[in-house]
Design a protein around this nucleic acid. Structure first.
Lengths: 211, 211, 211, 211
DNA sequence: ACAAGCGGGACTACCCGTTGTT
DNA sequence: AACAACGGGTAGTCCCGCTTGT
């Protein structure tokens, strides 16, 4: 095999992803990506047929990493406890831990970025985003169903909605975090989501949960 | 009396706002705005010094309308009840009512749209957005403080966080709603937020709240 | 009415047409056209949506002028004589006169130029070219039919073929003329075509006809 | 023995020639040629120093084949008869036979293709084309001179012109054939050329000649 | 107030050719 | 001999905003 361009390709995608989160897709120029990588037009269009092709590759990779994160989180939670409800709460707790590591207030979610420029993309990309959110609904929903079976919630709950709320909080916290320049937004909002879950499932809330 | 350009100006802003919510600001061209209005360059640059000037005018108008909405909501809630906690819950409830009227799944918030292209804008615009969210934190926070004074919450609560969560839920619901093409997302997520508030403030949750 | 761009548009088309006949359509760059006119990209793309749009406008104008030429020629011939055969021969003779005025050996026919790059164009343009040649077949054919009715040819003749041969000779003479750098090619080949017609229609050939 | 690149070289030239006849030289990209052959850049630039080098090689090969065709035709005609005039007519007749075999209406002559993009090429290539047409003028002219010596034409004839007319008809018929999508154009126009020759040399025209 | 022509620059896409590698 | 990665430049397109005119 001749020279390996895998790394170059990844470098382009990394740089582009950062820029997209700050300028949007349309606001991110190929030249800006290249300036960030030190490459030239020739290299870029060797790896990607078009800028939109790059956009596709980036959102796809993002979705795959998102799935990988979800898988890792649930597996860790499963190893930490066998109680169904605790697995759910720990999953959210682990996300809080991760969120606490974030220091860049410009951090955000590519799904949301693309969603606010949705008309720029084709249905293929819309599908990737929809499926991405759907998987969380499914997996988190499964954990909720298991918890419900083990110990029914105080009030009847629409599991899909409640599962979606995790992503709702994440996405909303990103927007507010960016707007306030506050990198602690996500972790703190996730703690409220966890507190809500504890209340829904009648766990005695810990003092730390909401304050 | 010469021709009144106010209407033309508003028409430009309306068309542009719709396009921005679907293509982002960078993805919205002046020509596209003009095509949507039937006007020409001459008219556009008569009303706006530049595209960025338009972007500024639109976000400013959006912020003003947002303030107006907040004021209207709280005033209506204040008229409906004198109980501090109920005022808070009714405010959210009124928002749910409004959200239920929405049928366009592409609906979204300009603040979020701009936030995901933040590097395109100057600090003036960043300030408008920050102030916009801040006002809600303030006003909703005030209602929470009043409610707390009247009947302390079950657990200690960071009022700012809890107030922010309203916008977090709104913004997150817009993102998920756009992604799923589901215009009911916002209303249903707001109901969860209200249910959470009720639990935090030890109100006996209603069955309808979470399911 | 604001400023009139008609002349600018024509200037672009004139320059482009000259370049196309020497470099082909693909070999003619927009920049080269602009350099020849002193205009800028902005002006160009104000008048033409794309380079292909320019190509369309040019071939259409060429076809219209070609029709106009055909009409002028036949009308002049009709005024010069009432004998059907003479009208035909005079039409060709007038073309010879015109051909003798040509001094630029790079002169050529846009139809042929486009035909040798046909895959670059859409069916709309193919149709313009086909119709262009077809009209000559029709009109010259009509003259031949009139001549035949008046005085039958020595041998049975396929009128369409014989009419097409006029354009065949013109097109072929352009190619040879360009290749040899010989601007007299067209006139001399047309004379042979006329000589052929005279023989077909049993006119005693003039000494000048083929020598 | 290492791998034989002769075949690869020919494959590139074949593919390129087809593309050039449909898109012109400028409109034919190296990438398109490679896509048509399944090869890559490395292979291409191993065989050709540049795209222009390919253009040169193709026109040269075309000219050689053209010469070869002329030689074959005249030799066959010489074998078929010893009458000078018949040799001329048979040569054209053999061309008609060949033309009847053509079914691709996109068939054309590289000389003409290059002639309509002449400014793209250097004098070396112009010379190849000029020499190509000149050889026909020479050889066909020689046959005409021999025929004239044997039996003077009815009218004085410029032999060079009359010889050129063969190529004029061929080139013109290609242009019309492409434009009409009519692969029978060439054979039928050649028949008219032959009929003209017969009339010029006072042969009693056959009924089939012109109808 | 609005219309159209136009300038000038930025951006995407492509294209030719080179280099390293097998 | 052929392949993939890459460089560097250019072509076509678009886009913002200015100017001229009604």
């Amino acid at each position: 095999m001749p020279r390996d361009g895998t790394e170059t390709r990844a470098q382009i995608m990394d740089t582009a992803q950062q820029l997209i989160l700050q300028h949007g897709f349309a606001g991110t120029t190929v030249d800006a990506v290249l300036e960030g990588t030190g490459l030239t037009k020739g290299a870029f269009f060797h790896h990607f047929r078009s800028k939109n092709d790059l956009g596709h590759a980036i959102i796809q990779r993002f979705a795959e990493r998102d799935q990988e994160l979800l898988r890792t989180l649930t597996e860790r939670a499963e190893r930490l406890t066998s109680d169904p409800l605790q697995r759910l709460l720990i999953t959210v707790g682990l996300m809080e831990e991760m969120a606490e590591q974030l220091t860049d207030p410009n951090h955000g979610c590519l799904f949301a970025s693309y969603a606010y420029e949705s008309q720029l993309f084709d249905d293929d990309i819309h599908g990737i985003i929809r499926d991405g959110f759907h998987l969380w609904r499914q997996k988190i929903g499964d954990m909720m169903r298991a918890a419900s079976a083990h110990r029914p919630p105080r009030v009847p709950v629409d599991v899909d909605e409640l599962a979606d709320m995790l992503n709702v909080v994440v996405e909303g916290a990103y927007v507010l975090g960016k707007s306030f320049g506050d990198s602690t937004m996500l972790a703190r909002q996730l703690r409220h989501y966890r507190a809500y879950l504890e209340m829904v499932f009648a766990v005695e809330p810990r003092a730390s949960a909401a304050g």
